[in-house]
Simulated assay, not measured.
Amino acid sequence: MENKIRVIVADDHACVRVGVRFLLEQISHVSVVGEADSTQALAELLDVCTCDVVVTDIGMPGIDGESNAIQFLRRVMHHTPHLPIVVLTMIHQPSILMGLLQHGVAAIVDKRDMTASLIHAIDAVLTGQGYLSNHARAAIAKAGTPQPRSGVMSAGEWKVFTMYVSGMTISQIAVRLNRSAKTISTQKRNAMRKLGLETEADVIDYACQIGLT
């Protein structure tokens, strides 16, 4: 087949990238055109390498001190909505998975389903369809019908949230950002609500799953 599907693979674990490349190279209509081990490397690759699909983890080191790839992927999906993003992850928290879909991620493949589902996910997103692998679908279904969120986090709310889960107190964040503790506390609560997190235990679980801690 002359017109192969061009895929960029991004994951900070070399063994995962090797596994994905090996899997995709067994398919005649797919070609891996680039690999990245960090968000910065993925950003640079997207600037110089034309692709049809990005297959990426979200727990990679981020840009400008960010500790995961979510914010960068949000920017990619905003500026290039025609480029499908397939998230390959071990995350199983329903609120996180639903949040990814609401941000515009085209497909989510649990790494445990990679062999059976990744090719199907790539083919699906190129025809404009969404895709959830079995474990991802089961995780979302287990939580029942998700409650609507009150919008998407602002950059300020996300910054406060990431500073908080890194171990800083509300007061320390307020001093660092030159804002009142009341404002910081409100932004932190807003971020939790928009992520579907209700308790401090939920915050810790979320942070661990996406590589914030």
Rank of each mutant, 00 (worst) to 15 (best):
S31N: 12
L88W: 05
A10D: 02
C51I: 02
R75C: 11
L195W: 03
K182G: 06
I173V: 12
F22T: 07
M77K: 03
Q40C: 12
V86L: 02
H92K: 09
R112Y: 08
A107R: 00
Q209P: 11
T213V: 11
G59M: 01
Q93N: 10
A181S: 15
V7C: 01
A143Q: 13
D52A: 04
I91D: 02
V48A: 05
D113L: 05
P81C: 13
R74K: 14
F22W: 06
S133A: 15
Y131A: 07
K194F: 05
Q129F: 13
Q147W: 04
R21E: 14
Q172C: 02
D12E: 13
A121I: 02
H78C: 09
L24V: 05
R21A: 12
L73K: 00
V152F: 10
R6E: 07
G104L: 01
D205W: 08
G151K: 05
M60H: 01
M60P: 03
A41N: 06
P148E: 14
V125M: 03
T56V: 08
S31W: 14
V30A: 07
S150K: 09
R112M: 13
S67K: 12
A138C: 15
I184C: 08
H79N: 11
A41T: 06
T39S: 10
D12N: 15
T162L: 02
A155E: 09
E66S: 06
V32P: 01
R75K: 11
V152I: 14
L24K: 00
I85R: 02
C208S: 13
E66N: 08
L195G: 00
K111D: 00
V86C: 06
S171F: 10
L197V: 02
L177V: 03
T39Q: 03
D205G: 13
L45R: 04
D12V: 08
A14W: 08
T145I: 15
A116Y: 03
A116T: 10
K159R: 11
K142L: 11
V20C: 10
L97G: 04
T127C: 11
E66D: 11
G104V: 00
V125S: 05
A69E: 08
T162I: 01
I140V: 10
T80I: 10
L126K: 10
H82S: 14
K159F: 09
D202N: 10
V18I: 11
C15M: 14
P148F: 05
Q209C: 09
V105P: 04
M98G: 12
T56K: 00
E25G: 12
T56H: 08
H79V: 08
L46N: 02
G62V: 09
S154A: 15
L24N: 08
L132W: 12
